[in-house]
Design a protein around this nucleic acid. Structure first.
Lengths: 230, 230
DNA sequence: TCAGTTTCGAGAGCAGTGCTCTCGCTCATG
DNA sequence: CATGAGCGAGAGCACTGCTCTCGAAACTGA
């Protein structure tokens, strides 16, 4: 993140951002499938070929949006957790705060949610930048577990536990339980919560659930209880 | 399902099926985003405008594929459950059999999975036919719960339960528990399992989990245990 | 049997897409 | 101040979904 020196670098950074902003704005209207590089260029008063000076193609532009969106939802989660901590919330209360923050963001930015957790764009092989940004949200969930563990919480003894070797070492090292029972279950919780949000947004719950927010609250509570959070 | 009488009706039924088959074949290669109506027409040696005699547009063609895919995965689930029942399996064993059958199908038909559970296609408002087909898979999960309830299984008393009014009446009526504790949790289980499969297929688990199948097995076991299945 | 109607496939055409290439102009650096 | 890199504009290619027309084929009822 070095400050741009020359006027050209400055203009390049600004235009890159302007293209991303316009793309994100249009994404909110038409969805990832209908996002058009030419339309983005038109909105900025430039010709389509000029955009290729800044992004290798439409997929590259979408990847840039993905990284920003991961950071956006991660920041929301971190902020909600920090607020809960400041209010002396219990682990379960922190868990609920983060879950609802993620769901609120997803509903408000449903097309960005589609970009992150829906059908992946074909020519997209997650680069390192993406995984770092993608980890921010689940990492706040992990942090809540760690705080609970530090205060003496233990994983319920009567529940199935994951085979420790299944969890990648660098991931398991983030959680303070050698048995990796928490690690395995928090990954399942993360997948499940995104699954519930996806089902809500993608219409799978039509005719099944009447109050989405209330059901999500139940889902988050059940998940926290099944993790053994106090 | 009336048999076609005239030669024209016969040809129409056959061509409709041929178009769907070709589309499904191409879908397996290129994914939903790149599926092209013109390419499908080319493969069948017809001109693109002729396809419009059979499907209103590309979205309509995709919707037809969606219904067939829902039925395909539903049939897989039902068949796996029937086999487990024939082998005198316990509810948990039946649950695992169905879950793995769904995952196996999803991996084998990843682009169809994307069609069903990934980003929805824009001009698509699930018609009645779709919801019936979509319900087949989760209904087998519900059936396993019902069998367990009939044999005396009860929902674990120490877990959070869903507010009964949140579950649509027609859905709640399918499960034999007036408190709707099972209904609420089995919906969560369903969402979570599809979420895990989606995370695996969409690359969210890269660098997180080393053995996808084994982790899914853990996820299914944990879910069965949390439902209180014997 | 035979006119009239419907159904169908082919073709041309339109507006839009992603992407490539070339051509000058402008800015930055030697 | 000159050289080279970066840049925007424009033309062009191959492709997409979709509409329309037209002639041929298949079905219908008298």
């Amino acid at each position: 993140m070095s400050a741009p020196r020359t006027a050209r670098e400055r203009a390049r950074a600004e235009l890159t951002q302007a293209i991303k902003d316009a793309a994100r704005r249009q994404l909110g209207e038409v969805g990832p499938r209908a996002l058009s590089l030419r339309a983005v260029a038109r909105e900025l008063g430039m010709v389509s070929s000029a955009v290729y000076r800044y992004f290798a193609g439409i997929d590259d532009l979408l990847t840039a949006l993905i990284i920003d969106s991961y950071n956006a939802v991660g920041e929301k989660a971190e902020h909600a957790d920090a607020q809960a901590v400041a209010a002396d919330a219990s682990p379960t209360e922190r868990w609920l705060a983060v879950c609802h923050a993620v769901r609120d963001w997803s509903i408000e930015h449903r097309h960005e949610f589609e970009l992150l957790y829906g059908t992946p764009i074909p020519g997209y092989a997650a680069p390192q930048d993406t995984t770092v940004a993608a980890a921010r949200m689940p990492m706040t969930l992990v942090g809540i577990c760690n705080a609970a563990i530090e205060n003496g919480a233990t994983y319920p003894a009567d529940r199935p536990t994951v085979e420790p070797s299944l969890i990648a070492d660098n991931v398991a090292a983030l959680v303070d339980d050698p048995s990796r029972a928490f690690s395995g279950r928090v990954i399942l919780a993360w997948s499940g919560l995104i699954g519930v949000i996806g089902f809500e947004l993608f219409g799978q719950y039509v005719g099944v659930i009447s109050d989405y927010r209330a059901y999500f609250d139940y889902a988050a509570r059940a998940t926290a209880a099944e993790l053994g959070l106090p």
